[in-house]
Amino acid sequence: MEQRLAEAHREDPTEQYTAENRRRALRARRLRRGVLAMGLVVPAAVAYGIFVIRPIALTVQYSFYEWDGVTPSTWVGLANYAHLFRDPELYGSILNAFQLIVWFSLVPVALGLFTANAIRGFATSRLAVVSRTVLFLPQIIPLVAAGIMWSWQLSTDGLVNQVLRLVGLGGVTRAWLGDFNTALPAVGVIGAWVLFGLCMLLLLAGMTKIDPALYEAARIDGAGPVREFFSITLPSLRQELVVCLTVTIIAALASFDIVYISTQGGPGNATLVPGLEIYYLAFFQREVGMASALAVALMVLVLAVVLPLQRISREDAS
């Protein structure tokens, strides 16, 4: 390649420009640009291959073995996957993750939409900046800190129960994270609190790029704020909504930190999620094969939920 480049240079001064020469020069330039592009892409591609593709491939491979992580493994084919559908503890964890979608995804997106719309109303005032910052704060708190903080607040004598007693609802107070019926929703509330700020900020950013002329036109046509919201704001935000849903649904299905800190899957598996189960299987039960099978199943599940969402956004764009 370099040789050919050099040739082109040598021939240039002595010979007349011919069509052949011009084509060669063009090809050389394209090559040079290609090499540059490759040079820029290769490091990232190599890192992606080593740190993303290879672990995924190995996980898929492990999922066909019974292996304790150290000693020789036994090929078991699809037995790990079959077990996944028979063991109520394993598929139960997946069902719990789907329940968490309501809390991690639907609640923050709905609240985010409502709040962003409200903030948009006084977008120019200082109050908007303050409320945006305050509401986004949970997002920058480490999940572990959020988990610890909330497990204190939700404890028997925590803030939540204190407030409830204060307003005369002492009868409903309980150890929220220790009660079979309320543990999963309580974990969900923590997730909603963390993800709400992100959704609100994304949606608010989306709202600022809506052409104000649309609102003006709507108002001239006699539309009220509700009509404005449903006819202009909501349809214009489809892209942002899809991003919000994608990020939060993945957070729900792949949740680990918050659950690990606040309940560790308890009481009695009521808050067991696949991420936690994979961790227990791999590091406590030393069933690397089974853990890998659940990890692969979780990955497929995430893709199955998230990919159709992406299609919605793409169809909308075209």
């Binding site: 491939a57 190995l58 492990y62 150290v70 020789p72 493994s73 090929w75």
Partner: peptide, 9 residues
């Protein structure tokens, strides 16, 4: 990557 996991160590 091709051999079964865990045999070497």
């Amino acid at each position: 990557a091709c051999s079964s996991p865990g045999s070497a160590p």
